[in-house]
């Protein structure tokens, strides 16, 4: 028998540990009764109790979710229409369009944050939840557009012609053919937008005003005040929400999976 090399397995294990060990430690420490986290002081849920009684955390979580939901909804609609336009029409102007949609993905976040802050200040807009939402929509559009565009890449345009041929007007064709077929791409884009919005720190940090603190910003200020165990518990909850969102997406996409050609 040919002896299989152990190296690929070890490499995989090493890579996974590199990724997940810090996260696993964080989750374990959130149940650690010891304050410093260096040693195991017994299982406890007291950090979670403290967390649930901290009003400002609930406020931050509410802000985060409001921002994420609105930003996701808006950027999904705008991003999807952008992707459809990019896919359907060709031309020099479309190259510029593609460039504009693509750029926010590669521009450093801090640059986006600063420029948006300067923009809002110049327009004398008061910083608050609205500015955070607008900023999040801005960068989420690009992610949604790219996700939908990749789905459209294997979209067979003749089925649009087939629908028209069978008597459907453009409205019916869009809603009963185009949208259902690219729905997995739209979902992927929306999920991406949601997760990016929930954990965005840099951009939110610049454009948030008093009372519009989001969870990541709040966690950052908690670190400065040194309440590590609370942060662990909070991060664990965030982690759980993210996992649930991905799980939901998996289930939805399994039910809606269009038959691949």
């Amino acid at each position: 028998m040919i002896k299989q090399s152990k190296l690929p397995g070890l490499l995989t294990l090493g890579t996974l540990l590199f990724f997940y060990l810090p996260i696993i430690l964080l989750v374990i420490n959130s149940f650690n009764a010891s304050r410093t986290g260096g040693s195991w002081g017994g299982f406890t849920l007291k950090w979670y109790e403290q967390l649930f009684s901290a009003r400002e955390i609930w406020h931050a979580l509410r802000n985060t979710l409001v921002v994420a939901v609105i930003a996701t909804a808006a950027s999904t609609i705008i991003g999807t229409t952008a992707a459809i336009a990019l896919h359907r029409y060709r031309g020099r102007l479309q190259n510029a369009h593609y460039f504009l949609v693509y750029t926010p993905l590669v521009v450093p976040e801090i640059l986006l944050g600063i420029s948006m802050l300067l923009f809002f200040v110049a327009l004398k807009v008061n910083l608050g939840l609205t500015t955070v939402i607008l900023a999040h929509i801005t960068f989420c559009i690009s992610y949604v557009a790219m996700a939908v565009l990749s789905r459209l890449q294997d979209f067979d345009v003749t089925i649009i012609e087939a629908a028209r041929d069978l008597g459907a007007n453009s409205w019916t064709t869009t809603w009963s053919i185009l949208i259902p077929v690219i729905f997995p791409g739209i979902m992927a884009g929306a999920l991406l937008a949601f997760t990016l919005s929930i954990d965005d720190f840099v951009i939110s940090f610049f454009v948030a005003g008093p009372g519009s603190t989001t969870l990541p910003i709040h966690i950052y200020s908690m670190i400065k005040r040194g309440s590590m165990p609370l942060i662990n518990a909070l991060s664990t909850i965030l982690l759980a929400i993210t996992f649930l969102a991905i799980l939901a997406y998996q289930i939805i996409s399994r039910h809606n999976r269009p038959a691949e050609d």
């Binding site: 067979d156 003749t158 089925i159 012609e161 087939a162 629908a163 028209r164 041929d165 069978l166 008597g167 459907a168 007007n169 053919i177 259902p180 077929v181 809606n256 269009p258 038959a259 691949e260 050609d261």
Partner: peptide
């Protein structure tokens, strides 16, 4: 196309995959 009493069978069938 949707106003013509003409229907087409496409080369690659163009069936709606979903």
């Amino acid at each position: 196309p949707n106003m013509r009493k003409v229907n087409t069978v496409f080369q690659n069938y163009a069936l709606f995959p979903h």
